[in-house]
Design a protein around this nucleic acid. Sequence first.
DNA 1: ATATAAAAAGACCTAAATATCTTTTAATAT
DNA 2: ATATTAAAAGATATTTAGGTCTTTTTATAT
Lengths: 148, 148
Amino acid sequence: MLSKSCVYALRAIVYVGHNSSENHKIGIKEIGEELDLPVHFLSKILQSLVKHNILQSTKGPHGGFYINEVSGKIKLLRIIEVVDGLSFFHKCGLGMHECSDTHPCPLHDDFIVFREGLYKIFATKTINDLVKKVEDGNAFIQNLNTKN
Amino acid sequence: MLSKSCVYALRAIVYVGHNSSENHKIGIKEIGEELDLPVHFLSKILQSLVKHNILQSTKGPHGGFYINEVSGKIKLLRIIEVVDGLSFFHKCGLGMHECSDTHPCPLHDDFIVFREGLYKIFATKTINDLVKKVEDGNAFIQNLNTKN
DNA sequence: ATATAAAAAGACCTAAATATCTTTTAATAT
DNA sequence: ATATTAAAAGATATTTAGGTCTTTTTATAT
């Protein structure tokens, strides 16, 4: 449903939110290692988040990624929008072009419940909400003795 | 969520269920044209459904695809299983290896509602259910003046 | 100013999903 | 038996997602 890029983005941003501050930035290498994600690929993804002002970064010594006040309040949906686009939340589950409430495909009424439920979750929760969850003990860092 | 292959499979099988009988089989060409799907690609997908006894076919003149009593009662989940596999319904929405009710990722509790709801739909509805929906007027054939 | 450290950018590679084209096999009608 | 028709099977091409490697830019500390 969410692409790998998108999931990587979410996990990385939560890691940064959880571990960084204005004067302690997190390097891409650390993020990749801790989350067991491909560093260079992740780097591209974070670049794009930075461009969209969802994440902050600075270059040079002691540089790295961090997150500011404003970014913490960004909704997960915004990240999905930037990385994957929002078509998932609009398009027909059976791939029909002309599927809608008035002209529904045979699965429309069933699908729509879940599509909209998910939408609401993503449209409501913020990065900070996830960071808080992690601070309250939710799983987050990949178990070290397993691999994708 | 469902791959194109899977969605093609569902639509094709409903088309066949709706239009075929023991003595009127439907050719792959007709299916492809009516549903506006790539014929040869669809052909592969249907081949696999036939192999798994989800769909019936015969070769030769007046051959084609059809659906028998038993197949009509097959659950949508079975088609998904054959085409895409069922990993979607088990794996973590944030791609964590070790995500579970007792060791949940920060989105686990939200995701699981949606995943299980969808699962129940697919595990309950049969091909015949969709065919009936279509016969009751649900959208199904692609609008002819739109293209993917 | 210079060296250094770290992200940004660019070029490239790989694998999987999707799609097309060709040949073979198997029913059926003649 | 033979011709014909349609699916099955095989080979190949294209596109997209995912991933790696190298070079450039920029901030910082010395």
